[in-house]
Design a binder for these strands. Structure first.
Length: 827
DNA sequence: GCAAGGTC
């Protein structure tokens, strides 16, 4: 039996399909798919199935000095046991093994990992390696006809990277975490890729902070030919004889302004026409795909996640690739044919097929890993197979493919220079004369700027002279896609990991918001690393590692040479670090607190800090706790972000709640708390009244919703719901069972006797479980209305939101269409 | 529980 091993299940299935001519059978072994035909079996791994780590005796951070990790053993252990087990079973029965993992360095290492697992159980079976860069019939059959051997040197290069990354990452991460006393989930991480990436963001922040804006002036005027007017801008020649628009002295700007304003005509002194070819874009690699999706509003992570889904479902090719050159056997005409007749993608395909010959564009990167991202020709149905976001991304990939086989666009540029005394004005016009690829790829701007045809010597009207005072702007923050592009330029991370690295920086509390801003903690970590372990925050470490890996791959160096040298460098770093442990720790701890600080506590003057409760919700508490027990509530949705904006009344920073699309600015927590106010105390809190004297009170939240809650919130989060609208009256009558006053809600004509809030809630829960209806959560909907709505076929809030208000109003007595609309809005 | 790299 021949055993074929691929890097992933998807590739295994497609290779089985090609080699068997579609006749394979599939079965499952330990939850792993195995494809079988004519004496062959094909199984997919899931990337690395073994990982490197230190022996277990190094696992307690407090028992082991971080420096000891440098010379600790590094072991390989199975991380995907079911796959490894399946591989062993299949390998025992094999008389030939073919490694068909991806055609790149990491694929060679994954192949070697499979090789070792096979060898453990089968010492003699021949093991060969096949390489192909796209899973097409030609390439795959060709590769299997010309098998090769595993390149152990190339795999060793990958192993050197694993070892160096683990040792540096773990030793420095533990050192910083221990020095700051951050040992739980909030450890302080450092790594060869994440730290230089974070430094990019931190450096940009430093530039912005250090930026000193400079004033300058620009002048604009309208020129007129017949009835049409167009904007022109003043320019001059600077000392290098370059055109310059910015005037750096106010007096000069005023002078020009006076000159221009004193005249009502200008003379054309130069007309320059030229056509520019606007070449269609190169095929998508991962980075350029992320950038294009970013322009549509998708985060890097989200774009990749959608692309992975589209790939798994068979609509697009593998989304993790560096390649920007299509393989030879991609036939653009055949692929376009698949789209002919499609309701929204068909017209463009038909238009492209009218060309005599299609010559796809080529990018700069031609690699062996995978083809550029393109559609497979299998088309999903919008709203059926894929949702709107997935469709938008799918269409982007399809249209990018279209663009790569489309004609260039042609622009006509027209530059007009007019003169008034010794002042010159210029107008730049541009017109898209041949739309070319823009017709099939509408994601780039094709905005035109109209400037009429004029002749040299012609007199033009001059009006509306404007002098604008401006100032130079600090550099812009990096957006996610710019960051990923820069990482790629600097060789940081890989096509598969760059977006995850950004996500990791968010998770570790190093960056917030989008575009990302660094936290104080991030600034302190980069500071510490720059001072003591500069190498780990420099892209130089990766560049050197790449060179070392090339040396290993070509046989010029060994794995031991490279890892030994790296260990020595880290030893030196630790020699310098030892004395500064406390100083580093103090700085990190201070920065951690700075990230949470809002301002002074109104009761004791210590710092108010954003804290999280045991339940994962957030509140504001005093750093003087337990001496000062002052707290303020925060909204229950989202993660708080402290803004630079301060409240004038309380000197507290305002807070924004990050919750995806529901993100909102909460404001100053003290103002909000005063606004919300706590109503009268009703009685003891059933959860904590006995032990901590908690009381129940009527509360109004920031969102406007109300509840009966414990005054010790957030330490105690006992709460009972109250209706959204109507005035709540607290009566003198008390519930015998719970000792709480009966409540009455006044809204509309009939007062609603809610009764004891605990009883009311229990009844509500009972009704809900009985009727299974969530409709009672709506304002003014009681059991009767639920019954009436149910008779009309409305069983739940979902039904109600989908229903036509007019139709429901006709079916249900005493309920107006307006009222239904109100409920729909509330839902 | 540390990294970065595969993949889901």
């Amino acid at each position: 039996m021949e055993l074929i091993i691929t890097e992933k299940d998807n590739a295994a299935r497609r290779i089985a399909d090609i080699l068997s001519g579609g006749t394979y059978d599939s079965s499952r072994e330990n939850g792993v798919n195995v494809y079988e035909w004519g004496g062959k079996r094909c199984v997919g791994l899931s990337g690395h199935v073994v990982g490197v780590d230190f022996p277990p005796e190094y696992s307690d951070w407090r028992d082991v000095e971080p420096v000891e990790l440098i010379d600790a053993d590094v072991e390989k252990t199975a991380t995907k046991e079911n796959i490894v087990a399946t591989l062993r079973i299949l390998a025992r029965k094999a008389n030939t093994v073919t490694i068909a993992t991806d055609y790149d360095r990491e694929g060679e290492l994954i192949g070697k990992e499979a090789y070792e697992i096979v060898r453990e159980v089968n010492e003699t079976v021949p093991i060969r390696r096949v390489r192909f860069s796209s899973i097409t019939e030609n390439e795959v059959t060709d590769a299997f006809e010309n098998p090769d051997d595993i390149d152990f040197d190339l795999a060793a290069a990958g192993e050197a990277r694993q070892i160096i990354d683990l040792i540096w990452g773990a030793a420095l991460t533990r050192f910083l975490s221990l020095s700051a006393g951050q040992l739980g989930d909030d450890f302080i991480s450092v790594g060869r890729v994440q730290s230089p990436t974070l430094k990019l963001i931190v450096d940009r922040k430093r530039e912005i902070q250090a930026f000193d804006p400079e004033e300058y002036w620009e002048l604009f005027a309208d020129l007129q030919k017949d009835d049409t007017s167009f904007e022109a801008q003043y320019f001059y020649r600077d000392e290098d004889d370059n055109e310059a628009e910015r005037v750096w002295e106010e007096a000069t700007a005023e002078e020009v302004h006076d000159t221009l304003s004193s005249r009502d005509a200008a003379t054309v002194v130069d007309v320059n026409r030229r056509t520019r070819t606007d070449a269609p874009p190169a095929p998508f690699n991962t980075t350029q795909f992320i950038r294009a999706a970013g322009a549509l509003g998708y985060s890097a992570q989200r774009a990749m996640s959608i692309a992975e889904d589209l790939y798994t479902a068979g609509y697009i090719t593998y989304p993790r690739t560096d390649n920007t050159v299509y393989p030879d056997d991609l036939e653009p005409e055949e692929l376009l044919d698949e789209f002919v007749g499609h309701s929204t993608l068909g017209d463009s395909a038909e238009q492209l097929l009218e060309a005599d010959a299609l010559e796809p564009t080529r990018g700069d990167e031609e690699t062996t890993d995978h083809p550029p991202i393109h559609p497979t020709g299998e088309i999903p149905s919008r709203g059926g197979d894929v949702n709107d976001d997935e469709w938008e991304i799918y269409e982007l990939v399809v249209r990018r493919f279209y663009a790569t086989v489309a004609e260039a666009a042609v622009w006509e540029h027209l530059k007009v220079v007019a003169e008034v005394d010794d002042c010159r004005l210029k107008a730049n016009g541009k017109r898209l004369v041949e739309p070319g690829y823009h017709d099939v790829y509408p994601y780039f701007s094709t905005a035109e700027n109209y400037v009429p045809d004029v002749d040299e010597g012609e007199r033009l009207g001059l009006t509306d002279v404007e002098l604008e005072a401006k100032e130079t702007q600090p550099p812009r923050r990096y957006g996610q896609s710019r960051l990923i592009e820069t990482m790629e330029d600097q060789g940081l991370g890989t096509k598969s990991t760059r977006h995850n690295t950004l996500e990791k920086l968010y998770d570790r509390g190093y960056i917030e918001s989008d575009p990302p801003r660094p936290t104080k903690l991030a600034m302190a970590v980069i500071d510490a690393a720059e001072n003591y372990a500069d190498r780990v925050v420099s892209e130089e470490m990766t560049a050197q590692l790449e060179a070392d890996m090339d040396a290993i791959a070509s046989g010029e160096a060994t794995l031991a040479d490279v890892t030994d040298e790296s260990r020595e460098m880290l030893e030196e770093i630790f020699a310098n670090l030892a004395d500064s442990r406390e100083e580093i720790g103090d700085h990190l701890r201070k920065s951690l607190k700075d990230d949470k600080r809002l301002g002074p506590c109104p009761e004791c003057g210590e710092d108010l800090l954003v804290r999280s409760s045991r339940h994962g919700s957030y509140f504001v508490g005093c750093d003087g706790y337990p001496d000062c027990e002052f707290t303020l509530p925060l909204p229950s949705t989202g993660k708080p972000l402290i803004l630079d904006q301060e409240c004038e009344d309380h000197d507290l920073n305002e807070v924004k709640m990050l919750a995806g699309r529901q993100t909102f600015v909460h404001g100053c927590p003290l103002c909000k708390s005063e606004d919300a106010g706590e109503g009268p105390v009703l009685g003891d809190c059933p959860d904590c009244g006995d032990d901590h004297d908690g009381d129940l009170a009527v509360k109004t939240l920031q969102s406007g919703s109300r509840l009966v809650g414990c005054t010790r919130y957030p330490d105690c989060d006992y709460s009972l719901p109250l209706p959204r609208r109507g005035e709540i009256e607290v009566t003198d009558e008390r519930c015998e069972e719970h000792g709480l006053p009966e409540l009455v809600v006044h809204s509309g004509d009939d007062p609603w006797e809610l009764g004891c809030p605990i009883c009311n809630y229990q009844e509500f829960q009972a009704r809900e479980s009985e009727t299974g209806s969530d409709l009672e959560a709506l304002d003014g909907v009681g059991a009767k209305t639920v019954e009436k709505l149910s008779d009309a076929g409305i069983e739940s809030i979902d039904d109600l939101t989908d229903a036509d208000p007019e139709a429901v109003a006709e079916d249900v007595d005493g309920v107006s269409a307006d009222r239904i609309r109100t409920w729909q809005a509330e839902a």
